[in-house]
Design a protein around this nucleic acid. Sequence first.
DNA 1: TCTCATTGCAACTTTGAGTCGCGATACAGT
DNA 2: ACTGTATCGCGACTCAAAGTTGCAATGAGA
Lengths: 203, 203
Amino acid sequence: MNSVPPRPAPVGRGKKVSVAVHAATLAELVERGYAALTVDGVAQRAGVHKTTVYRRWKDKESLVVDALSDQSAMDVPIPDTGSVETDLRELARSLVRMMTGPTGGALLAAMFSGGADVPGIAQARRQIFDDRFRRAEPVVVRAVERGQLPADTDPPQLLKALAAPVYFRLLVTGEPIDEGTADHAAEITLAAARAGVLGEGRS
Amino acid sequence: MNSVPPRPAPVGRGKKVSVAVHAATLAELVERGYAALTVDGVAQRAGVHKTTVYRRWKDKESLVVDALSDQSAMDVPIPDTGSVETDLRELARSLVRMMTGPTGGALLAAMFSGGADVPGIAQARRQIFDDRFRRAEPVVVRAVERGQLPADTDPPQLLKALAAPVYFRLLVTGEPIDEGTADHAAEITLAAARAGVLGEGRS
DNA sequence: TCTCATTGCAACTTTGAGTCGCGATACAGT
DNA sequence: ACTGTATCGCGACTCAAAGTTGCAATGAGA
């Protein structure tokens, strides 16, 4: 009967607003970066009033974190070619593609270009990476099963070794990133794995 | 005769002020990070008025970049133990030590936690790394001469491979950094170098 | 000692974060 | 179609920090 349903449909017209603000946040993030992003700017781009944004999100940080979390559900194709070399190369290349694409740009901009010390953003970032690594683990597991890698190879560790050179370029040296970067990272990781230094129980 | 020397001694009592502001900037950087750093806060800590800071530095960015450049002349001990394993491990460990120390903390805070997209800071960062890599190159050169590494091993590339895992932890995954991290990075790099994937002409 | 550059000081403008109250409106259930 | 309520628009507000300006005070060098 539900004499008085507390919140049968609490989302009124807010759904569309939410979507618009999300999109606007990502867009502003790409164009201006986190530091130069203004809530008013996001609101105007979304065709919404500033107050409305503040009614839905606590502050600038929450707004960006939320927009990021939404975007974190990006589909990462998990290669399965039967060869570790090819699989790792593909994995690295899709990472590069993500980074250089417009969507990835927003993510990276927020996560590293200004929001690095904001607790919420740091946490969201970690969550995104955990998720991504977990989904890529099968690639390593399969390689071990095929006998192409040492039995004690630790999947997360291998995946981190794979991603590290790419991020190093992006964040530290600022060198351009392309397929060659990905292929090189795959080579390094493969050599390390075969040498048995990506085993469990290592830091 | 110099009837009217343009600027015989332009630095009046400003020298001490400059030093104090520099120190204060670094200190505030460590405590609050780049984003939360206020010029007024720096000025007060330096025992100087805000206006004075603005008279010497164009804005917040210039102030931080300048303080950073000063600090960039940190001495990196270059190991020479006769063994690549030990040398690389030492190199990585001193990087970790630098990162976890108070001085390194200021650098990292400014370079990545908020100032990543500020052009001046990005440039200063690149310069610092170039310098650091150049000074460490002899380690690789010596190892090649000793026949411990393939002849075509590219020093900068090896050093980047060495640093990448450490920075990845610091900036991306946020995992704690210690000696184990350094040792692991050295192992990975060594395996890659021996496999010949750190040669010249690779991206 | 004398002088001029440098500093201290206070008041000012601007910009963006975040808040509040009120009136307008779109959607839900009937 | 009608009505009630939650949501939204709007403007005005506080607050903090960036950056500027004019003037008075002072310290270091000739």
